[in-house]
Each structure stands twice: as structure tokens, then as C-alpha cells.
Design a protein around this nucleic acid. Structure first.
Length: 700
DNA sequence: GTAGGGTTAG
């Protein structure tokens, strides 16, 4: 039954429209509103709120426009509030400004609701200083206006300002609620201050504040982002209700802290709880795949996104990055050219991918196209570009674009840019020019820059300079074993034996322990992990036999083991045997044994590939007639060329951290190493779901 | 007024 507006008084009409809207019957609300000849302000407001409830900000603004032009009723505080919130939803700052002007002219400049909505609009549009101006001018500030400011600054990555505003709020005697805490927790996550985050958490517990799913999820996220996955897990486990967002907070935490297999196994648990992944959580899964080179799962995620979701800019970029880091540059570029949802980060990712795979010319071409497309290259673009030049030996291009980056694009070179340039120059033999560049730096040169110079000194036998640079590197207390090895090597080359001893002593004193190396290889969609000297594998005997055969062939071709890469005082024969048992060799042998002839083998290693393995894999690639890609923590090593000419490409992996392989937060390879024969996990896809199973079961 | 996602050096 349709009730005509003519039969009811304006007040009841407004209430009826509101009731229809509440029950989700928007057409009824609209037709009732249509019967009113001269709606009063409460009828207009009811209809505006109805649209607003139905997530139709465009319709709200349309109706608001009609209300203004008809001039039958004068908008009030609620009208302006709803209209401004609609602008905030669609980030329509221009219309918002018009509405603000109208509201202020009608005397609502000091209305706390109107002003809070205005704050919300400014904050959502990123106009934080405009928001601040309005906020400072407000004579009455309620919890909502404080919260808008606090959460607004938090969401725009201004953690210190966020905390500042909260302190002011406390000082003025206002007591915050859970929603304020969400902003504060976000700020703590942004600063990376776990202790502050914990104190916020503690404050909430002491005050017995109600913890809802949103607050708890932000706590999970805060702990996870700060690398305290144990606490994140604890909060997560205690949650009464969890949705995809809460799972995603935990999963991204694991993935971003390098616990790739945990992230993947959590995704499986989430699906087992009946929740369907969305594109946000899949981006974290893709990050995990790219860390461990799990191409098969990455592809399966790609399929899921294509079938059941949609590409967006972020998932598209994550896919490009995943394909590149899993060794498939052709998939990465095909996807980049296919997907229309692209922004400058997608372009940066693709440029970085070309660079990582040694395609410097392609990187430059894409960079030029990016400029043509009207996108603005940023610091990351140039870092990728310069590194691409470095790994393709394009020295002249490097010099040229470094100069234009500063002059034309006004980008101040950062540590990364200098590191790229120093690497580019030093690698190509221009060691003195690289040194000069460091001396000209406006910022304090960091360890990355000096190490780049040092490896240049090492490669080009600049021993005197190397000696001096090594000293500078040591002063900066590196926490990476590889750097100590490099320093020690250069002292050894310069025959400074006392310094070699000194470096070794330093390594011991610092308690540096060699992180156990492991290698992953994907065979038939299962990821197999191998430790150095790993005897636990069911195919161990076959693998050793294969390695022995390869060793014989290699020696016939002129290979001699480079035992200087074994860092122990052992007999030569033992050293040779140790080299043979490096995890990458076990993984390659396993790959050769279990894949069809001619198939490419991709290995992912958690440490750097040693010089001897590098040398040996060239031979193996030729003997077995296979393309072998070894991705270590820093580089892609491609072995393909028949002439055994080898190119080393750098890949932007997850920083310089060494990522442990873990299951349920425990570093499994450690346990496996201690016990010697313990299972290492194998990750496989079973009936469309990812499973982690022990290697014995995976072999069946 | 409230939570989760992508690119960057050795």
C-alpha cells in the first residue's frame, strides 16, 4: 500500500521515510517522498539520510542540489552534515567547499556536527592542514571531532602528529573510546614503537574498554607490523570473532616479516574456517610466494583473482612482482601490458623487474614510455632504473639519468641512488670515480655505499683503496656475515694477514654465527627445501649419485673446486666435499632427477650463492643442458648460455634480511639441523588448497 | 569518527 504524503503531517512523513530506509526499502521511501508537494526540511533530510544509508553519495548530492534550487525549505545542520559526508565518501572536495560556504553563510560555522563533517571531508581528501585550521577554530570540540583528527592523521601516516593530538585531547580532559584507540594503535604501528603500542593496549585493558573486532584487528596489525608476531598471534587467538580483515592483518604480518610459509599456511586455515580470500589478503599471499619463489602457488592465486575477483592496481602490481621474483619475467611483462589498472607503482615494479633480470635496455624503454604516458617518475623509479643500468653495464646511461634525476626531476639522491651509482661505476671499473662520488655526497654515506665501493675494489684489485674502505665498512658495524667475508677477502688479497685474523676475531666476538643455508626448488608444484648436507631427504642417495656423476663430468671439462669459499680450517678434501653438499647443489640435483629434460630449474636460496657453486652451476647447466636460475637473497643468477658466459643480475628481494624458513613461527631449519634427520616442510597445492606436508609424504 | 594490500641499493 502506498501512503500518500498529502494524508500525513510533515513530521510523520519524515519518520516514515526514515523507517522505509531503515528496512532497506529505498523505492518505497523515494515514492513516498515523491508524493509530497512541498517537503519541509525534515522530509528532505529523511530522504537524504535514506540515500546516505544506501551508500549512494551521488544521489545524496543530487537531491541536495534539488533541495537548494527549489528553495522550499532551508537546509539545517543535519542537511549539511549528510551532504558533506557524501562529499567525503567520493572525495569531492570542490562540492564540499561549496556546501561549506553555504553552511557558514547560514550561520553553521560553529556547529559541531557540520564542522566534524567538514573535518572528515578534509581528512579523507588528505587536506590535513585545512582540517587543522577548521579544528583550531572550533569552540566546541566533541569526541567525534577529536577522533576525526586523530584517526585522520593516523591514516595519512603522521604518527607523531596523531599522538600529539591525542595528548592534547587528554590534556583537555576528554576521555577517548575504542575508536580513538584504533588511530593511536595505527600510529604506533607506523612509528614501529611496540612499547608505546603495548602501553595503549594495556591502557585499554586497565580501563576495561570494549574490544571489538576492529580494535583487535588493529592490535594484531600493530604487533605484526612491528615484527612481534607472537603477540599478534596471541591477540588474534583470543578474538571471539574473526573476519577476512583480521586474518589478513596477521597474514600480512607474517609475510612482511619473512615468515612466508606461515603466511601461506594461515591462508589455508582461513579458508578452512569458511572464509573466502579477497584481493587484499591475496596480495600478502603473493608477497609470500615471491619470497620463497613459489611460482605454482602464485599462479594459482593469479587464477583465483581472474576468476573470482578483479584486478586492481595493487593486486596487479603484486602479481607482476611475484612473477618477476619467481623468475618469470615474460609473465610479468605480459601481465603488465594486459592489465589496465596501473599506476606509477605498477610501472616502477615493471622497471625494477626488467632491471632485476638484466634487461637494462627494456627498463629504459619502459621508463621513457612512462614519461610519455604522463606519469611522474619518483625516487623509486630512478632507484630501479639506475640499478637496471648497473646490472646491464650501461654506465653512460647511468651517469646521464642520475644527472637528469637531480636537475630535471628535482629528486634529491638518497642512499639507494648513491649505492646504485657507486655500484654501477665501481662494477664497470671506474672505482676512483665512484669514490669521488661518495666524497661529493650531501648526505652521510652509509654502509651500502661503502660496501658497493668495496666490492668494486675487490673485483678490480684496487687493494690500497680497498684496505682503507674496508676499515670504514668495519667502523659501521655491519650485521651481515657476507660483508665480513668480503672485508676479510680484500685483506687477504692485500696480504694483510694480521687484519684477516682481526676480522675473524671480530666475527667471533660479535657472536656472528653462520645462518644455516637452505635452498628451495619447485618440482611438480611442490616446493622442496634442502639444507646444507641435508641427509633427510628420501632421495638422498640418488641425489648424491647424481652429484658425483656431475662432479666427474665437470672435472673433465676443467672445473676445479674453489675451496677458498669454505670458511673453515679444514683439509682440502673435506672442503671439497662440503662444497658439494651446499644446499643449492642438492636442490639442483633433485630438480634434475624429478623434472623432464629441458625444463627450466629455479632455485631459491636464503643466503648468497657461494663463488664455487656459482662456478659449478655453469658447468651443470651445460652438462644437463638446462636453464638454471638461482635466486639468492640478493641476486638472480641465470645459467643458460652455451658458452657458459655468466651474467649476474641483482634482484630487489626483501631487503638485506636473511629470511628463515619457518612453520608456526619456529625456525624449522634450525630444528632440522640440530636433529639432523628431521622433516623439512614441503608446500603443495592439493585440490586447489595449499598444504604443507612433510617431504616423505610429498614424495608419494 | 573505527581494522588488513603493491615498487626502491650491496
Amino acid at each position: 500500500m502506498l501512503i500518500s504524503g498529502a494524508l500525513l503531517d510533515p513530521h510523520s512523513l519524515g519518520r516514515l521515510i526514515a523507517a522505509y530506509a531503515r528496512f532497506g526499502d529505498l523505492p518505497a521511501a523515494r515514492s513516498l517522498f515523491g508524493t509530497i508537494l512541498e517537503p519541509n526540511v525534515s522530509a528532505w533530510n529523511a530522504m537524504l539520510i535514506a540515500y546516505s544509508r544506501h551508500e549512494s553519495p551521488g544521489r545524496v548530492l543530487n537531491l541536495f542540489g534539488r533541495m537548494i534550487s527549489k528553495k522550499q525549505a532551508c537546509p539545517d545542520s543535519s542537511t549539511f552534515t549528510v551532504a558533506l559526508n557524501a562529499c567525503a565518501k567520493i572525495l569531492d572536495l570542490e562540492t564540499g567547499e561549496e556546501i561549506k560556504l553555504r553552511a557558514f553563510n547560514l550561520g553553521y560555522a560553529d556547529d559541531v556536527f557540520v564542522c566534524s563533517s567538514l573535518l572528515n571531508l578534509y581528512v579523507k581528501c588528505g587536506r590535513l592542514s585545512d582540517a587543522m585550521k577548521v579544528f583550531e577554530g572550533m569552540s566546541n570540540k566533541d569526541l567525534v571531532s577529536w577522533t576525526t583528527m586523530i584517526n585522520g592523521f593516523a591514516s595519512f601516516g603522521k604518527p607523531f602528529e596523531t599522538i600529539g593530538i591525542y595528548r592534547r585531547m587528554q590534556f583537555e580532559g576528554m576521555v577517548g573510546d575504542g575508536i580513538v584507540m584504533v588511530g593511536l594503535i595505527q600510529a604506533c604501528a607506523g612509528i614501529g614503537d611496540v612499547r608505546l603500542g603495548q602501553s595503549v593496549h594495556g591502557h585499554m585493558i586497565r580501563r576495561e574498554m570494549r574490544m571489538d573486532i576492529v580494535v583487535e584487528t588493529s592490535l594484531v596489525d600493530m604487533y605484526a607490523k612491528n615484527g612481534v608476531v607472537k603477540l599478534a598471534n596471541l591477540v588474534f587467538k583470543r578474538m571471539q570473532i574473526r573476519n577476512v580483515v583480521s586474518w589478513s592483518a596477521l597474514i600480512s604480518g607474517y609475510a612482511q616479516n619473512g615468515f612466508a610459509s606461515d603466511a601461506i599456511s594461515l591462508l589455508i586455515s582461513m579458508q578452512n574456517c569458511g572464509l573466502h580470500p579477497d584481493s587484499v589478503v591475496l596480495v600478502s599471499a603473493l608477497l609470500a610466494c615471491s619470497q620463497i619463489g613459489f611460482l605454482k602457488l602464485g599462479k594459482s592465486v593469479h587464477g583465483y583473482i581472474m576468476r573470482r575477483l578483479e584486478y586492481d592496481r595493487i593486486s596487479g602490481t603484486a602479481l607482476i612482482d611475484m612473477y618477476s621474483k619467481c623468475g618469470s619475467i615474460s609473465y610479468a611483462s605480459a601481465l603488465f601490458h594486459k592489465v589496465s589498472a596501473r599506476d606509477s607503482i605498477s610501472w616502477n615494479a615493471m622497471i625494477a623487474s626488467y632491471g632485476a633480470h638484466g634487461k637494462g635496455k627494456e627498463a629504459l624503454l619502459l621508463f621513457l614510455k612512462m614519461k610519455e604516458a604522463g606519469l611522474k617518475p619518483d625516487g623509486a623509479t630512478f632507484a630501479s632504473l639506475l640499478s637496471a643500468f648497473g646490472h646491464s653495464g650501461l654506465v653512460e646511461e647511468g651517469r646521464y639519468w642520475f644527472d637528469r634525476m637531480v636537475r630535471e626531476f628535482g629528486i634529491e639522491p638518497g642512499e639507494k641512488h648513491y649505492a646504485c651509482m657507486v655500484d654501477l661505476l665501481a662494477r664497470a671499473g671506474h672505482v676512483d670515480e665512484a669514490h669521488k662520488l661518495i666524497k661529493s655526497m650531501a648526505i652521510q654515506p652509509g654502509i651500502a655505499v661503502w660496501v658497493a665501493l668495496l666490492s668494486g675494489c675487490h673485483n678490480h684489485k684496487k687493494l690500497e683503496l680497498g684496505d682503507c674502505v674496508a676499515g670504514k665498512v668495519l667502523e659501521l658495524n655491519p650485521d651481515d656475515l657476507g660483508i665480513y667475508v668480503l672485508v676479510s677477502n680484500i685483506y687477504a688479497a692485500a696480504k694483510k694477514w694480521d687484519k684477516v685474523v682481526e676480522v675473524r676475531r671480530l666475527m667471533k666476538k660479535l657472536g656472528m654465527k653462520k645462518v644455516p643455508g637452505y635452498s628451495l626448488v619447485e618440482v611438480n608444484g611442490k616446493l622442496h627445501a634442502f639444507l646444507m648436507e641435508d641427509k633427510s631427504h628420501p632421495q638422498y642417495d640418488k641425489i648424491m649419485e647424481m652429484l658425483k656423476r656431475l662432479d666427474l663430468e665437470m672435472r673433465k671439462m676443467g672445473y676445479t673446486p674453489k675451496t677458498e669459499f669454505v670458511f673453515h680450517d679444514l683439509e682440502e678434501e673435506v672442503k671439497e666435499r662440503m662444497l658439494c653438499n651446499h644446499s643449492e647443489r642438492l636442490a639442483i640435483a633433485f630438480g634434475l632427477l624429478n623434472t623432464s629434460p629441458g625444463m627450466r630449474i629455479m632455485i631459491m636460496k636464503n643466503l648468497r650463492v657461494c663463488g664455487d657453486c656459482h662456478y659449478a652451476i655453469k658447468f651443470i647447466s651445460k652438462i644437463a643442458n638446462r636453464e638454471i636460475i638461482v635466486r639468492d637473497v640478493k641476486r638472480f643468477h641465470h645459467f643458460k648460455d652455451e658458452k657458459m658466459q655468466m651474467t649476474v643480475y641483482t634482484v630487489g628481494t626483501n631487503g638485506s634480511r636473511i629470511l628463515p624458513l619457518t612453520i608456526n613461527g619456529e625456525a624449522k631449519y634450525m630444528i632440522a639441523r640440530d636433529k639432523g634427520t628431521e622433516n623439512l616442510p614441503v608446500i603443495q597445492i592439493h585440490q586447489g588448497k595449499v598444504e604443507i606436508v612433510p617431504p616423505c609424504a610429498a614424495m608419494n
